[in-house]
Amino acid sequence: MRYILRICGIFLLFFFFQSFSVIVLASTDRTSNFSSIDVRLTNLPWWIYGIILVVLIGLVFVLLRRKNQDLQNRIPIRREEPITKRRENPTIIPGNAQTIGSRDEQQDAFGFSDIYDDAFMQEFGVLAVLADGMGGLHGGREASHVAVQGFLDHYSQSSAIPSIPQKLISSLDAANQSVLQFAREQRLLGNVGTTLVAAVIFQHELYWISVGDSRIYLMQGESLTQLTNEHKYATELEKRAALGEISEEVAKNDPQRESLTSFLGLEKLEQVDISEKSISLQKGDSIILCSDGVYGSLSNDEILEVCRYLPTQESAEELITLVLSKKIVNQDNATVAILTID
């Protein structure tokens, strides 16, 4: 193709100069006849040169255009990748149950986002929250309810926050501020507290956050995994015992062992657990939120045995029935909230 273009270029220049010579000579010698002018190599009329010139220009144009198309065919065209279709939110089945146990009042609280609000689910997923008011402090019942409601309200209104983990952190802070505000109003600042755990299922992914000693379990098939850690003084005691600073006996019998080291109601939350990355979920997976009145009475095997065979709501009710069947002295409030992917 390069050689053809070069040859055409040479002929084009040749006939251009020929035509130019004819025109110049004709314009300087008005008595001359174009057909009789000798332009060195040929005596063709001027209009033939014009035709040849037009044909050559057209040929060069066609060849250049074809070459350009060949180049385009050789260069891979970068095509925009198709936008991945956003995964639809799965159908979520909630379940819940609780008992006051042998306590004077129910200090556990829980709540779900509206699972029938499709617009909310598409943007925020499905949220479950559970809180356990601290019985050793005043206002435990009010603190747990204020925390749950504050968390739910903030989560549903924080549309400007781009990610689920950031929304969970922001909502936890809002819940803590709600508890602190309640404590100030009741002049109980420093004497009000509650645990809180929250889980979100968004497009087959699980996100969670925790403060205190309530738990979140993930049930997948035949396995039950505890996702959260307890923020208790016992954890520090066990670390000190492992380092040889105190004996295991001292760590085991410390009267403050069960005291919480982090909970809502503190001016600054220094211990907060949050999922570092989302957990992929499949149909049949369940997320189980529970207070210590449940896991303190039941083993993990017992929880798994109930939840893997029964429907979600029946599982929640059966767990509480099983707790009560233990007839534990001074049975604590026990609450469970479950989300299952259908």
Rank of each mutant, 00 (worst) to 15 (best):
N68H: 14
N68C: 02
N68S: 13
Q69N: 11
Q69K: 15
Q69V: 14
D70V: 08
D70W: 10
D70E: 14
D70Y: 10
L71H: 11
Q72I: 08
N73M: 10
N73K: 11
R74M: 15
P76C: 04
R78A: 11
R78S: 15
R79M: 05
R79G: 06
R79I: 07
E80H: 08
E80K: 15
E80R: 15
P82L: 09
P82E: 13
I83Y: 10
I83E: 13
I83M: 13
I83K: 15
I83T: 13
T84M: 09
K85T: 12
K85M: 10
R86Y: 12
R86I: 14
E88G: 07
E88D: 15
E88P: 08
N89A: 02
N89H: 02
N89F: 00
P90G: 06
T91I: 10
I92T: 00
I92S: 08
I92C: 03
I93W: 00
P94C: 03
P94R: 00
P94T: 07
G95M: 04
N96Y: 08
N96T: 13
A97D: 14
A97K: 12
A97N: 13
Q98A: 14
Q98M: 12
G101R: 03
G101S: 00
G101I: 03
G101E: 09
S102E: 15
S102K: 14
S102M: 12
R103Q: 02
R103M: 08
D104Q: 15
D104K: 14
Q106G: 07
Q106I: 04
D108Q: 07
D108H: 04
A109W: 07
A109R: 10
F110K: 03
F110V: 05
F110I: 07
G111D: 02
G111W: 06
G111N: 01
F112Q: 08
F112N: 03
F112G: 04
F112K: 00
D114P: 07
Y116G: 10
Y116W: 04
Y116T: 12
D117P: 10
D117K: 08
D118M: 09
D118A: 13
A119R: 12
A119I: 13
M121H: 13
E123K: 13
F124H: 15
G125C: 01
G125Y: 00
V126Y: 04
L127W: 02
L127D: 01
A128F: 06
A128R: 03
A128D: 04
V129C: 10
V129F: 05
V129A: 00
V129M: 00
A131N: 05
A131R: 00
A131V: 04
A131P: 00
A131H: 01
D132N: 06
D132Y: 08
G133T: 04
G133M: 02
G133P: 02
M134W: 03
M134V: 15
M134N: 07
G135I: 09
G135C: 03
G136F: 09
G136D: 06
G136S: 01
L137S: 05
L137Y: 09
L137F: 08
H138M: 04
H138K: 14
G139W: 07
G140L: 05
